[in-house]
C-alpha cells in the first residue's frame, strides 16, 4: 500500500498549522520576541492550550460525527445538529439551575448523561423512518435538535442565563487557557477507543442483521458508539462550546475519497477534523486582527463550501 506519503503529508500539514497557531495572536511572537519569559508564559498559558484544544476538538468531533453516521446508517447527520449537543447544553443548564456551585465533573456528568439520552432518543426515532427516504433522517434530526436548542434558549432567557447559553452553543477557542481545556484530553482518549472499535462500527454500518450474522453483539456496539459520541460532544460543549459542521463535512469527504472501512479511514477523519478546526481558528484570528471571528462562523462558511464541492464532485471511479 502507498499510504506512507499521505500520512507524512497530513502530519507535516498539522505540524505547520500548529506552529502557525502558536505564533499567531494579539501578543506578537516571533524572532526577536521569541525567548523572553513573557513569550514562554504566553505560549504555556494560552497558545499551546488553544492549539491543543482546537486539534483535540476537531479530531474528536469529526470522529463522533463518523460514528453517529455509521450507527444511524445515514451520512447527513452529526451530533451538533441532531440533538446531542443541544441535549448536553440542556443538561448543563439543568445542573447550573439546581446546583449553581456544581464542580466541573458534575457539570460534565450531567451533560454527558443528557447527551446520551438525547442521542438515544434520536436513534430510536429514526428507526421508525422508512429506509427508502434517507433525507428524512437529517430532517428529523434538524427538527429534533432545533426543538431542544429552542428549549435551551427559552430556559436560558427565562433565567437570565443567555450569555452562558451563547457560550455553550457557539463554540470558540479565544477563552481557552491552561487549566480550562484539559477535559478535552478525555475526548482524545475516546477517539482512541473509537479506533479500537473501528471494525465493529464498520460492521454496524452494514446494519443490524449483517452485524448479528458476523457474531457482533449489536446492542453493545451501538451502546459504545452512543457513549463515545455523547460524551465527546458533552466534553466539547462544556469546555469550548458546540463546534458545528466538522462532524458532518469531514467524514463525508473522507468517505467519498476513501470509503467507509473505519480501520483505514478513521485516522484520516481525525487528522482532517483536527486540521480543519485549527485552520478555521487560525483564520479567525488573522482575518480581522486584533479582533477574532468565532471558529463556528468560519466553519459554517468553509463547511458549506466544502459540502457543495462534495455534492458536485464526480465520485472517483476505481476502474
Amino acid at each position: 500500500m502507498t499510504r506512507a506519503p499521505g500520512i507524512a503529508a497530513a502530519g507535516l500539514g498539522l505540524l505547520a498549522l500548529a506552529a502557525a497557531s502558536l505564533l499567531t495572536g494579539v501578543i506578537a511572537l516571533g524572532p526577536g520576541t521569541w525567548d523572553g519569559p513573557e513569550a514562554l508564559a504566553v505560549l504555556a498559558v494560552s497558545r499551546i492550550p488553544r492549539t491543543l484544544a482546537a486539534l483535540l476538538t476537531g479530531a474528536s468531533m469529526a470522529v463522533a460525527g463518523l460514528i453517529m453516521q455509521m450507527l444511524a446508517r445515514n451520512r447527513f447527520i452529526e451530533p451538533a445538529t441532531a440533538g446531542t449537543g443541544q441535549s448536553a447544553a440542556l443538561g448543563i443548564l439543568g445542573v447550573t439551575l439546581l446546583w449553581p456551585a456544581a464542580p466541573i465533573w458534575a457539570q460534565m456528568g450531567t451533560a454527558s448523561l443528557a447527551a446520551i439520552l438525547g442521542s438515544l432518543g434520536f436513534l430510536l426515532m429514526i428507526r421508525r423512518l422508512p429506509p427508502t427516504q434517507p433525507l428524512l433522517v437529517p430532517l428529523v434530526g434538524l427538527i429534533y435538535g432545533g426543538l431542544l436548542g429552542a428549549a435551551v434558549g427559552a430556559i436560558g432567557y427565562q433565567l437570565d442565563l443567555l450569555q452562558y447559553v451563547e457560550v455553550w452553543m457557539n463554540g470558540e477557542f479565544s477563552g481557552v487557557l491552561r487549566g480550562r481545556y484539559e477535559l478535552l484530553w478525555a475526548s482524545g482518549a475516546l477517539t482512541l477507543l473509537a479506533y479500537a472499535f473501528a471494525d465493529r462500527f464498520t460492521i454496524a454500518g452494514l446494519g443490524r442483521e449483517a452485524s448479528v450474522s458476523l457474531g457482533l453483539n449489536y446492542a453493545r456496539v451501538v451502546a459504545v458508539g452512543l457513549l463515545i459520541v455523547s460524551v465527546t460532544t458533552a466534553l466539547t460543549v462544556v469546555t469550548v462550546g458546540m463546534i458545528p459542521f466538522v462532524g458532518l463535512v469531514v467524514p463525508n469527504i473522507v468517505s467519498r475519497l476513501a470509503g467507509d472501512n473505519l480501520r483505514a479511514t478513521l485516522p484520516g477523519v481525525a487528522a482532517l477534523g483536527a486540521g480543519l478546526v485549527l485552520a478555521c481558528d487560525l483564520l479567525g484570528r488573522i482575518v480581522r486582527a486584533p479582533y477574532e471571528i468565532p471558529v463556528g462562523t468560519l466553519l459554517g462558511v468553509l463547511g458549506a463550501l466544502l459540502f457543495l464541492w462534495l455534492l458536485n464532485a464526480r465520485p472517483r471511479h476505481a476502474r
Binding site: I203, L206, A210, S213, L214, N261, A318
Partner: peptide, 28 residues
C-alpha cells in the same frame, strides 16, 4: 446467512467487504 435483501449501502471495496466475512474468526 445471505439475506434476500441484504445488499449493503456502505462504501467498502469488494475485498474489504468479503474480508468482513472472516471477522467471526479473526475479530479484527
Amino acid at each position: 446467512i445471505l439475506r434476500q435483501d441484504g445488499t449493503v449501502a456502505a462504501r467498502l471495496t469488494v475485498r474489504d467487504l468479503v474480508g468482513f466475512g472472516r471477522y467471526p474468526h479473526h475479530k479484527g
